[in-house]
Design a protein around this nucleic acid. Structure first.
Lengths: 330, 330
DNA sequence: TTGAAAGCGCTACCAG
DNA sequence: CTGGTAGCGCTTTCAA
């Protein structure tokens, strides 16, 4: 089922069918209707690959995420997709699972698909991948905490600042023994996020002590992290989690052991995913506007398309502490 | 950057480059290496659209889901993708948000992409869409609870049976006043799932009463459903939720109002998503093997490819009651 | 307002 | 073992 068959049935040329289907409004109304009829009768669906190839431009945007299982990424994806649809684009997503090898494959895939733009939402990014993207002429937006370098566009959140707010809040509540539950972002040797935590604790008070533990970015990872912290000998009065997703697991493990939150131990998250409000107790966390990020990413990408020579841009988003019920006096 | 440039740089024809890149192992090793070098030097990424167009076959599988925000769908997607990668396929996903209009657009999109196979995981399916898929020659697997009709392949779960087990469990615990928290699956006028619930209650005991409420398939929808049930005047001793995702919201609302679970009200979910184990209290639910479903869907799809004339197949999966801590004596 | 035809980048077939 | 070349289905000039 192709253009030619439709053309034949409508008694016109393929060029005319193409014009009608693409809304090039120069076709006589009668002809147009004939074409539309034929296409409908034949249940014709244009071959998108041929379209992209012939037109030289794609109508799809790519997104690469570290872990779509974590609602944080999913929320960005959904916002991105919404905005994309509003502008007539489709979006395809790919997951790296925090694996750099996988990341490289995802980038290759997106280049192979000749996406019109790419949103990269992963913790770390290889320099070579960035240059590949550039050379392929694909506009890209990066959301992460890594160094800026010469990425094309950046949306950054001041993670450091967010963690400082968390630790300060905890400190003001009298906490002095802090544990950190992070996840391996196998892409960077030392986690930027963990060091932000360590610095924040040390900045608060010289007397404060801390202890970190790493697990996978999952509910189960959170549980395991809590378990490791509890059996380490270091007995914290507060557990700072790298994100809400893991915090949910931490809460569960604490609950399982009969440890009350926040009476015995305070717990904090990061991201303010919807789930954080549905946990028991609702999580004190830091709000990151995922919807805004997704929308912004798309706007940057499609805005860019016309003028590929615009200068690198950086947008920084200020996180915001949200105090709920998982934190209390030490 | 295209085949021709690589060919020129390697001093061979495009045909040879194509052969090397596709692993057609008839090229002399020296030539092959020369080609590989050239491709690497040029950071060449084959145009996937051209590949698909020329080859006449796509290496990507599509999946359409009702609501990827609900981990149930995401889990199927991830399992599907895993199996797909293992077989050298990519997968693209599309979301309908339970909207039939959106469903139609998704199907169109997938046909336009000429996917090699399609997994349709939505509650209801228009007959015309099915025939479109057939006429387009796209193998499809359906996972749902609707009628079988002439779908190409079906993976079904005996939802009715699962709900019966839930209600029977509750009934044995002494419950007689059942509420049902469902979601609009705007595609079907009367929800098959709700009627399964009603039938189950009536089958248990003539004295049992029931009451249903509908909301969106989300955490917030669950909360709203609980709220509606509680303010309806009907005061249930047990709330049966259409799935775990909504049950999480129900639990939250109950907790907010100081209603203890299961002491005051018992709550049940469905699906056994990982989250169900992380709620307070852990949810009594019905296990649906998402990983198996995703894997199975892919196997059916790729298995089918060779022999498109195989007969319609139906696989039915038996759900399994999982008793945790959200249910107790009435 | 419409048609003819030249590609888009790649695969696959036919020769050599 | 390698090259030439005819498409795949569509968009887009260029003419008419």
């Amino acid at each position: 089922m192709n253009l030619e068959e439709v053309a034949r049935r409508a008694g016109v040329s393929t060029a005319t069918v193409s014009r009608v289907l693409n809304g090039i409004d120069v076709v006589r109304t009668a002809t147009k209707e004939r074409v539309l009829r034929a296409a409908a009768d034949l249940e014709y669906h244009p071959n998108l690959h041929a379209r992209t190839l012939a037109g030289g431009k794609s109508r799809t945007i790519g997104m690469i995420a570290s872990n779509i299982e974590n609602p944080f990424f999913l929320d960005i994806y959904m916002a991105l997709e919404d905005s994309a649809h509003a502008r007539g684009y489709e979006v395809v997503i790919a997951n790296t699972g925090y694996d750099s090898h996988q990341l490289a494959r995802c980038v290759s895939l997106m280049i192979g698909r000749r996406v019109a733009g790419l949103a990269v939402v992963v913790s770390e990014m290889d320099q070579s991948l960035i240059s590949q993207l550039k050379r392929a002429g694909i506009p890209a937006v990066f959301y992460d905490v890594g160094p800026v370098e010469d990425r094309l566009f950046n949306i950054r959140v001041d993670y450091r600042h967010g963690i400082q707010a968390v630790v300060a809040h905890l400190h003001s509540l009298g906490h002095r023994r802090f544990a950190f539950a992070g996840h391996h972002s196998s892409l960077g040797p030392t986690s930027e996020r963990e060091s932000a935590f360590v610095d924040a604790v040390q900045a608060c008070s010289p007397a404060a002590t801390h202890f970190s533990v790493l697990a996978t970015d999952s509910l189960d990872g959170g549980r395991r992290a809590a378990s490791d912290i509890l059996s380490s000998g270091f007995s914290p009065t507060a557990i700072v989690c790298v994100n809400d997703f893991m915090a949910a697991g931490v809460l569960r493990e604490l609950n399982r052991r009969g440890i009350r939150v926040p009476a015995d131990i305070s717990v904090t998250g990061f991201d303010n995913i919807q789930l954080s409000e549905y946990l028991t107790p609702p999580l004190t966390t830091v709000h990151i506007p995922r919807a805004r990020i997704g929308k912004l990413a798309l706007e940057i990408l499609v805005q860019t398309l016309p003028r590929p020579e615009s200068p690198p841009v950086e947008t920084v988003i200020e996180p915001e502490l949200l105090i709920r019920e998982s934190t209390g006096r030490a």
